[in-house]
Amino acid sequence: MSALTMTATTMRAPAMIGLIAAALVLLALAGVGFGSTWIPLQDVVGVFLGGGERTQSLIVLQFRLPRVVAAALGGGAIAVAGYLLQKVTRNSLASPDILGVVDGAALGVVIFLAGLSDESNALTTSIAYQPLAAGIGAATATALVFLLSGRQASSAIRLLLFGIAVAAVAKALTLVLMLIGPIYRTAQATRWIAGAVNEVNWSEIQVTAIALLPAMLLVLLVARKLAPTDLDETSARGVGLELPIFRIGIFILAAALTAIAVAFVGAIGFVGLMAPHLARMTVGRNATAAIIASFLFGALMLIGADLVVRVLFAPLEVPAGTVTAIIGTPYFLFLLMRKQSHDG
């Protein structure tokens, strides 16, 4: 196999990925450093290496680092989910939002918060179960979307519409529950829904990582199988892609990733829309490279958004998901304005 057969983009893919990863590390360090007390980079590195001042070490390890890591994992996971969805629906405008996953997760969270609170508005079980509730909500919503769409699931636009319908029902129910529940929970739920990274702790991160690892491995394994999705449906099936089954499998994987991400960091679906675009632009079409790049960009975006929020809005805790949506939408719209050739 000759090296000449690699195209220019694929040749620079590893280099690009290295660059993005480096940017990510830098941003993460900045994210850890920034806060009510600014901790300079050398000190941050010092803490990681085991030394460092005690108060600094506490701040970094207990407060700042979990937040940054959670943002990285959540952003990365949902970015990969977005990539999968865009590939399988053959539409670069698809995002994890469209499956009703996010709204289902929100409903799960609200049911959990409202349902498991006693009269004094204290939670009767540990808050650690909230991600589980979110995950179950997300999974239920996705399952519903697929069950209802049945054979129509192979059409992107039909699936989108079923997703909108299921999402609408979930949104309405969520709203009702938020209104009859205690106000404190409502505020909590609202912040979560808008995408809040600031309330994670290490045990939650552990669970996220454990859940994420097998999912990501699976994604990388099937990455190569995604290649024919660039083609029209007939040709893709002509080279042996079992489209209906394959599609459902990918959707489930994407939904699982989204559920995991959303369970811990709230509704950050927009990251899943944009990160794959950036990935494709920088590393080209190779699926494995694009998946890795999507993950990195997703992590970058969410850490960046969280940083922006802290810089601009401190001491208010404006959810990072909001920021990604606000910053990202103009870019997304600009993307749409460019001539899209191959979209369904």
Binding site: P228, D230, D232, T234, S235, G238, V239, R285, H342
Partner: peptide, 28 residues
């Protein structure tokens, strides 16, 4: 797929895909 190939009536692929990338898909 290894025994029957099909050229679809209106095949489509991304415009920025190269010829080589397209042909390689035949080995799927």
């Amino acid at each position: 797929a290894r025994r029957i190939g099909l050229l679809a009536q209106s095949p489509s692929a991304p415009e920025d895909m190269t010829v080589e990338e397209l042909v390689r898909l035949g080995r799927y």
